[in-house]
Lab assay of single mutants.
Amino acid sequence: TEYKLVVVGAGGVGKSALTIQLIQNHFVDEYDPTIEDSYRKQVVIDGETCLLDILDTAGQEEYSAMRDQYMRTGEGFLCVFAINNTKSFEDIHQYREQIKRVKDSDDVPMVLVGNKCDLAARTVESRQAQDLARSYGIPYIETSAKTRQGVEDAFYTLVREIRQH
């Protein structure tokens, strides 16, 4: 089974770092803004072998026109913010609204991801993020692309959301 996953969120929150940590098991430290990259990885989730087709997208506003296209083809979405960047957390709402509009559905598989949880300088409390996820009816997972904490959990949870859909 193949799953088309799309990673969305503001610029600099760590979308590529999360994806590369999942696929290649290493942490990319330097920031190089993405336009669009796709990665494929075969994994076993709950005993089922599946192929993850992951689209890593641009957070930069100037590429926002490309969003409709990949939102149409994606089956599930990782909505990523950084726990030390309140603005990126506030941006999640717009991504969710755009996904709902493009998919013409209120019920699209999504996982809210709070990345950079290895950093002490948190400005978005776990509780705020949990409340937001609960209001959307989606899971919330904290990750660190640096330490790998929660990385597999985030992507695998999204696959489970798609399966249950």
Rank of each mutant, 00 (worst) to 15 (best):
G47N: 00
Q149V: 14
D29A: 03
C79L: 06
A129K: 15
V124R: 11
G9V: 05
I162R: 12
K116T: 15
V13R: 00
D118S: 13
N25H: 01
T57K: 07
G74T: 08
D106H: 07
T123L: 07
T143K: 09
T49W: 01
S64E: 07
K41H: 07
E152V: 10
I162N: 05
Y31D: 05
R122N: 12
Y136I: 12
V8D: 02
S64P: 15
Q164I: 06
I20S: 01
H93M: 10
Q164W: 06
Y39V: 03
H165S: 09
D131I: 10
A133K: 03
E75N: 07
D56R: 03
S105G: 02
G47V: 04
D106C: 09
D32F: 10
V151H: 13
Q42V: 02
H26K: 00
T123D: 15
V8T: 03
R148N: 13
H93K: 11
T57I: 13
A120L: 12
D131Q: 12
G59T: 06
I162L: 12
Y140M: 12
H93F: 03
T157L: 14
I141N: 13
Q98L: 11
I20V: 01
E90K: 05
F89N: 00
L119Y: 11
R72S: 06
E36L: 02
G47E: 06
V80P: 02
E75P: 02
G137I: 13
N115L: 15
D32S: 12
S144F: 14
M71I: 09
S64C: 11
K146T: 15
Y70D: 14
Y140G: 07
N84T: 05
V102C: 08
G74Q: 12
V151F: 14
G137Q: 10
I54L: 05
E2Q: 05
T73D: 05
E48S: 06
C50H: 09
D104M: 13
V111Q: 06
C117S: 06
V8E: 00
S144V: 15
G47I: 12
E125R: 08
E142K: 07
A17K: 12
I35H: 09
L55A: 10
I35W: 14
P139N: 12
A121K: 13
H165W: 14
A145Y: 11
G74Y: 06
T157C: 07
D68N: 02
A121S: 11
V108T: 03
L5T: 02
M71S: 04
A82G: 06
T57Q: 11
Y3A: 03
Q128M: 03
E2K: 01
I54N: 02
R40A: 02
A10Q: 01
I92F: 09
K15R: 00
K100R: 05
Q98P: 02
P139M: 09
F77I: 01
Y140D: 04
S144A: 15
Y156V: 13
E30F: 05
I99E: 03
Y136P: 09
I138Q: 12
V151D: 14
T123Y: 04
L52V: 12
G114Q: 13
Y70G: 05
R163L: 13
G59H: 12
A65L: 06
R96H: 03
G9H: 03
L112V: 12
V113T: 06
A65W: 09
T57G: 08
L55Q: 05
D68I: 05
D106L: 05
D68A: 06
D131H: 12
G59Q: 07
Y136Q: 11
I141Q: 06
Y31M: 13
D107A: 04
F81L: 03
N85C: 08
G76A: 11
I35P: 02
L78E: 02
S144R: 15
K87Q: 08
G11C: 15
I138N: 05
V124L: 12
E75A: 05
E142D: 06
E90H: 00
Y31V: 07
D32H: 08
A133T: 07
C50G: 01
M66H: 11
K15S: 04
V44H: 07
L51M: 05
V102K: 01
R96G: 03
E48V: 04
S135Y: 09
K4H: 07
D118K: 12
D118V: 07
R122T: 14
E75Y: 05
L5Y: 00
Y136H: 05
N84G: 12
N115M: 15
D56G: 02
D107N: 04
D153Y: 13
S126E: 09
E61G: 14
E62A: 09
H26S: 03
F77Q: 08
P139K: 10
I141D: 03
K87T: 05
D29G: 09
V111C: 08
D118G: 14
Q69W: 08
E142M: 13
A10S: 07
L119F: 14
Y31Q: 11
E62F: 15
R148G: 07
T19Q: 13
A10C: 07
G11W: 15
L22W: 08
T49M: 02
V43I: 08
Q24M: 02
Q60P: 15
E30C: 11
G74F: 06
C117A: 13
Q21W: 15
Q130G: 06
A17G: 13
Q130Y: 10
V108L: 06
R163N: 08
L132E: 06
N84D: 09
K41C: 11
Y156P: 13
V113R: 09
L158A: 06
A10K: 15
Q149M: 06
V8I: 07
A121C: 06
Q42G: 05
Q24S: 04
E30L: 06
D53V: 04
A145H: 12
S126F: 10
L78V: 03
K103D: 02
Y31I: 14
N25D: 10
D53N: 05
E30V: 03
Q94K: 14
V8Y: 14
G12I: 15
S144G: 15
G137V: 09
A82H: 13
V80I: 04
R96N: 00
V124P: 14
N115I: 10
E2M: 05
D29V: 04
F77A: 03
Q60V: 15
E48T: 06
I138S: 06
G12K: 15
Y39M: 08
Q60R: 15
D29F: 02
N115W: 05
A120F: 11
A17C: 04
L18A: 02
E36Y: 03
S105M: 10
V108Y: 05
S135A: 13
D104A: 08
D53T: 04
A10F: 06
D153M: 07
R134A: 10
T73G: 10
G114P: 06
T19R: 02
M71T: 08
R134Q: 09
Y63T: 15
E36V: 06
G150Y: 11
R122H: 13
I83P: 14
K103R: 02
R160I: 07
V102G: 03
T157N: 13
P109S: 05
L55T: 01
P33Q: 07
L78N: 02
N115F: 01
S144E: 15
L112T: 08
V7P: 02
Y140F: 12
S16H: 00
Q130L: 07
I141F: 08
N84M: 11
V13D: 08
V28E: 09
D153E: 08
L52A: 11
D106S: 08
L5P: 01
L51K: 07
E142N: 09
K41A: 13
F89Y: 08
G47F: 01
L55G: 14
R122Y: 15
P109W: 02
M66N: 14
D107M: 06
A133E: 13
I83T: 09
Y136F: 11
C79R: 01
K4D: 01
P139H: 10
G137H: 03
I99L: 08
Y3L: 07
S135N: 12
V8H: 06
V113W: 09
R67P: 15
C50S: 03
V159T: 09
P33E: 14
Q21S: 05
I54A: 10
R72H: 12
Q130N: 12
D56I: 00
M66P: 14
I35F: 13
P33S: 11
